[in-house]
């Protein structure tokens, strides 16, 4: 059975791993807001990627953290792995 990775999952992991952001925040429609504007830097995304890998048992490509600059991009990247895993 394939698992899903939703925006709520991402928000939960961001908060657990890196605390409440110091930018515009996670409330409202943030799918296409840059992580930097939300208030998370590259290290917060590294920590997030590492937590996603642990929780979902996947291995993200090293370029994902640099390339996925918005929640939507990160959700898509993780989902692609989950689909591949299920197949």
């Amino acid at each position: 059975m394939s698992r899903t990775f939703t925006l709520d999952d991402l928000k939960r992991i961001l908060l657990e791993g890196s605390g409440a952001p110091d930018g515009t925040g996670l409330d409202g429609d943030v799918l296409d807001t840059d992580f930097a504007d939300i208030g998370y830097d590259s290290l917060a995304l590294l920590e997030t990627a590492s937590r996603v890998e642990r929780e979902y048992g996947i291995e993200l490509d090293e370029t994902v953290v640099g390339d996925a600059t918005t929640p939507r991009a990160l959700l898509d990247a993780v989902s692609a792995h989950l689909v591949a895993q299920a197949a």
Binding site: G17, S18, G19, A20, P21, D22, G39, L43, E47
Partner: peptide
Amino acid sequence: LPSRLMPQ
């Protein structure tokens, strides 16, 4: 301090 600083 803000929660953002706690994990780091």
